[in-house]
Write a protein that binds this DNA or RNA. Structure first.
Lengths: 202, 202
DNA sequence: TTGCTACAAAACAAGGTGTTCTGTATTTTT
DNA sequence: AAAAATACAGAACACCTTGTTTTGTAGCAA
């Protein structure tokens, strides 16, 4: 790829990312991106058709990268047993996030977080499907499989969101424990018969 | 309230709701709302400062109404036990949705569903806090309470979303069962010691 | 009736969008 | 190295949307 193209593209991404961390997506105007990236108006439109496509491309780069890395992990043997969830894909994702690769945390914590959490969830679903559902690991005679795929993805993304709202004070291990705790229901497809009601009673 | 004001306000809401069911929120321009509501430009701005405030007011009317109704239910005694979850607030919410009061389903199913699901979740959180958390029903020694509030709210909204995506083919009772199934973990704050791993192994 | 209020219509400036044109610099091809 | 292709800058543009202002009319309430 032409060195000029690459530089321009990166300048646009950088400017856009900065702006997204500062203000609402809807309030960002193309001219601001152009000014901050210090490029010509024509150049921007030569690279991206609209602001929406720019966002799409940015997200694909960001989450594609994170998820692909997680997918590349040795898999198929993520066992949950108290204290030894070291090789969970989820723990790995959290650790990856903590590193703040490509300043993704600024985006996930900004006022635009819903946009990015949506992309995150969308990519995570693909991961859940290929890593778990496709291997029959999400079979449950009481619940539809796609309901569970959506459930697991949402729960994880919401866990990440909660973590970010708490300024990531907890360790990735602690957060993984929280998540696995609410996922525990997946381990026992049969309703437990007579367990003591100790907390919530719906 | 002046009869004219009321009529205008309703005409704007009606036009806006129609447009939201048809196209993306960002692509709706004020002039379209004005044209469809058949009012003067000045009149619109006399009622709503911006399109965003219009959306906010609409959502407050819609979800405030639904949640308030649910809050008005006799509460404090929603017990889960197989087959008798008839008086769950959640079941009641689903039944209320099914009635499609104020055409809320069109909005929740439209391409703008994320906007409305967000408002839904926000109001639902308040309900969860006042109906459950404030009464100590969400205490769990392993998980923070606000984590659980967010978890329950998200899980329910995602369940509703899943239901809508499946054209609401299942009965509210079935959906309530799905939801309560994944909420089951809240009933047993202690990790079960040695249950057989039958399905997912994270 | 007398105000008061809501509304309509038209015009307006300001600002954003996406395109076109011209000319220059950089990269790639021959 | 020369030639051709490509990426870019800058300016101008037609067009659209926004939110306000102005003027005049009709409905409502005291």
């Amino acid at each position: 790829m032409d060195r000029r193209q690459k530089k321009t593209r990166e300048a646009i991404f950088r400017a856009f990312t900065q702006l997204l961390a500062e203000k609402n997506y809807n309030q960002i105007v193309v001219q601001e991106i152009i000014d901050r990236a210090d490029i010509g108006r024509t150049t921007f439109y030569a690279h991206f058709e609209t602001k929406d496509y720019l966002l799409k491309d940015l997200c694909e780069e960001l989450f594609g990268h994170i998820i692909d890395t997680a997918m590349g992990l040795p898999h198929g043997h993520y066992h949950y047993s108290c204290g030894t969830e070291q090789d969970s894909v989820f723990l790995h994702l959290l650790q990856h996030l903590q590193k703040n690769d490509r300043n993704i945390l600024e985006l996930l914590s900004s006022q635009n977080n819903e946009i990015f959490l949506r992309y995150f969830k969308s990519n995570l679903k693909k991961l859940i499907v290929t890593q778990y559902a496709a291997k029959g690991l999400l079979k449950n005679k009481n619940l539809p499989e796609d309901y569970l795929v959506n459930y697991v993805s949402s729960a994880f993304v919401e866990t990440v969101h909660w973590w970010l709202c708490h300024k990531m004070e907890q360790s990735p291990e602690t957060i993984t424990q929280y998540f696995l705790a609410v996922m525990e229901v997946l381990r026992v497809p049969e309703s437990p018969k007579a367990l003591p009601l100790e907390s919530a009673t719906f």
